[in-house]
Simulated assay, not measured.
Amino acid sequence: MTAVGSDLWQRLAAYEIGPAATALSFTDRLARENRWDRTYTQRVIREYKRFCYLAVIAGHPVTPSDAVDQAWHLHLTYSRDYWERFCPQALGAPLHHGPTAGGGAERTRYYDQYAATLKSYEESFGKPPPGDIWPAAARRFGVDPKAFRINPADAIIMPRRWARWLVLAAILAAAMIFLAGRMA
């Protein structure tokens, strides 16, 4: 039987995270906190549910992608929903979050667990996970851990390529001003 046909997956797929009658839903909050659009956020939530499915059935420790981990972290803050409804009713088991202790051995362990998670995902769902949510292990453990939260009210955020062009434009403007001053 595929994951999609299982009772566990049906319960997870139907599960709505958080209280229903709120001004800011779980989906809206996850989108806001990560600056994701609604469509991407909904996809991440589906992948979070798939990760939870794998945590129960894979037979080995599983490791989430960074995006899936963001959904998991936020869900854990909805502690009553997570521990009193989600784990017992949807998962049928507790699912604890254990952060890394750091260091080379831990990096290797989580790297290997992530690779096994991706393999189990493909076996369970019949296709590889979406690369924009589940990047390759090299990115997950090389680039993603360098990320940190920035409040956009306190900083200007732009893609690195834009910053390079901005610096180049500033240098050219300064050179033109300097040359104009020398010619006057």
Rank of each mutant, 00 (worst) to 15 (best):
V4A: 14
G131F: 02
S6N: 10
L95E: 09
R160F: 14
I133D: 11
T22D: 15
P19D: 15
R11H: 09
D132K: 00
A137W: 01
G103N: 10
T2C: 07
V44L: 05
W83G: 08
P99A: 09
C87K: 01
Q113G: 10
A174N: 10
R109V: 07
H96S: 15
R149A: 12
D132G: 08
R46Y: 01
R139A: 15
Y121C: 04
A71D: 08
A20E: 15
G102S: 09
D69G: 08
R11S: 05
M176G: 06
L95A: 15
C87A: 10
R182C: 09
D132V: 00
W9F: 10
L168D: 10
A180C: 10
M176K: 01
R35W: 14
K49I: 04
E47L: 00
A105G: 02
D7S: 08
A31T: 11
L179W: 10
P19N: 11
I157W: 04
F148T: 14
E16S: 11
F148K: 09
A115M: 03
F51P: 00
A180W: 06
S25H: 02
T27N: 05
R35S: 15
P94R: 09
A101S: 08
V4G: 05
W83H: 14
F178Y: 14
R38S: 13
F86A: 06
E122W: 00
K127T: 14
V68W: 04
R43N: 13
